[in-house]
Amino acid sequence: MAEKKWLPRWFYQLASPRWCYQICGKLLPWFTVAMLLLLVGGTAWSLAFAPADYQQGNSFRIIYLHVPSAILAQSCYMLMAVAGAIGLIWKMKIADLVAKSCAPIGASMAILALLTGAIWGKPTWGSWWVWDARLTSMLVLFFLYLGVMALNSAIESESTAAQATAVLALVGLVNIPIIKYSVEWWNTLHQPATFKLTEKPAMPAEMWVPLLVMVIAFYCFFAVVLMMRLRNEILRRERRSGWVKELLLSN
């Protein structure tokens, strides 16, 4: 294995389900505490202390949910595709499990971004749904998640399902920028110069700092849910192994 030395040691350790299960278990409480503090603090800040927007009034406060969930939905797809690629290339089981655990979290974040965007649209544009470029791309991203999840549940063999899903996720990842630009271009063609939800020339600090807090809180939330799901998947996959039996019997 001399030719593979350029990869750090923890990369190989991660491949051990037991090690990964334990490290996730150790990290979980820290991330849970961070998530709770940041979520509660960020929500209070964004709801009560951040100033209202001079144009949109208090409906602007929806940004503190809409933007973090949209960012998370996108980066979750990225992680899913990268983990899938690692699983395909290095045949690493843990990467497959990470990819599988990502899909439902990302899909629910896409739903949240879509719903909050739609609710925001009502006071801003006067209707519950507008074919805005960002909302439409988010809808497509949601469809991509649905496709990945449908394919994963349709294939019975777990390893085949993981590989097929990884290929689909990679194809989706390559296509996301193309879809995004085509949708943006289509939008400018049909609705020239509409009022954009989140594009502000310059946001004052008292507005973007709570937004940043919420984004970090959402990432902590993502880490917590991902680790919980990953631990479940490891337990399921490794249920016949010795260390899981020990763990079960010690309970």
């Binding site: 409906s59 406060r61 969930s69 629910s108 939330f221």
Partner: peptide, 17 residues
Amino acid sequence: YVWLSYALGLVLIVYNL
């Protein structure tokens, strides 16, 4: 609008946890 959004956010986060 604001409270509906935050309620939905809460529901989705709690469900995910």
